[in-house]
Simulated assay, not measured.
Amino acid sequence: MDAQILWPALAAGLLVLATHVPLGREVLARGIIFLDLAVAQVAGLGLIVAAALGFGGGSWQLQLIAVSGALLAAVVLNWSEKRWPEVQEALIGTLFVLAASAGILLLSHNPHGAEEMKTLLSGQLLWVTPDQLGPTAVLTLALLGVWFGLRRQLGRIGFYLLFAVSITASVQLVGVYLVFASLIIPALAVRRLQGRRALGIGYGVGVCGVVLGLMVSLKFDLPAGPAVVWLLALTAAVVALLLDRGKRVRNP
């Protein structure tokens, strides 16, 4: 039973990491740390709106509403970065709070609203089904192809739009918290590295965090999403310390 639960959860975590590790490095380089949190929350708000309108999970209407919300947020944030770059982080934070508050208001009369909000934030990684993985894998390959093949041609708006699509897919699998953690934590661990080495170690941090987090979750019967977030952070901390120590040894 553990293996039947574990492999779809592991596959989902790895698919999320595939796009989040390179995108997270770009977010960190641009200094827009909370972009992912805001866009993920807007995508989650789209899911809440779609559910309130009666569209079930997996329906094309639900996906359209969720991705439309995220793309609209991306367009607005791209515009605000050009118009008011000095307060971009503040605007991103404001968008996050507005989207989160709107979700709470929409769920306030839903008898299962608290549980739905908890699921949106922390995800249900251990309950990912194989049916969810196929479309996500195709989308992930397409996004990676665009990112690594056309990154220089994307420009700022292209980055925002690609980011929004990636986040919309990810938040449905792993929740808002793990979306943020998988983007930012590996990037923080390798922030002083460059090129393929940074990308490779970043992926290593992410994979170790996901695997160890799922193992801890199953062993101690804990929620998978928060467990993976913590193990990602611990793994990243160890790797960052080892990298700093290695740098000091080479450059005493």
Rank of each mutant, 00 (worst) to 15 (best):
F159V: 08
T140S: 01
L6A: 13
L144K: 03
L15D: 05
R192H: 10
A236G: 11
A169D: 01
G175I: 00
G149K: 05
V49G: 03
A181I: 07
Q41R: 03
T19D: 01
A236V: 10
V176M: 03
A40C: 02
R192T: 12
R192S: 14
T119A: 15
I48C: 01
A237K: 04
G134T: 12
H112S: 15
K82C: 07
I104F: 12
L6V: 11
L214D: 13
A70V: 02
F220Q: 14
A189Q: 08
L133R: 07
G58P: 03
V76G: 13
A66F: 01
G123Q: 04
P8I: 15
L231G: 13
A237T: 11
A38M: 11
T235M: 13
Y160T: 03
N78V: 03
G24C: 06
A137F: 10
A70L: 03
I104S: 04
A66V: 02
A189D: 10
Q88E: 12
L232N: 15
L15F: 06
V128C: 04
L15P: 04
R245D: 05
A236T: 10
L64G: 04
L218T: 03
A3Q: 10
L64N: 03
E116V: 09
I48H: 02
R156G: 14
A187M: 11
T19L: 00
G58D: 02
V228T: 07
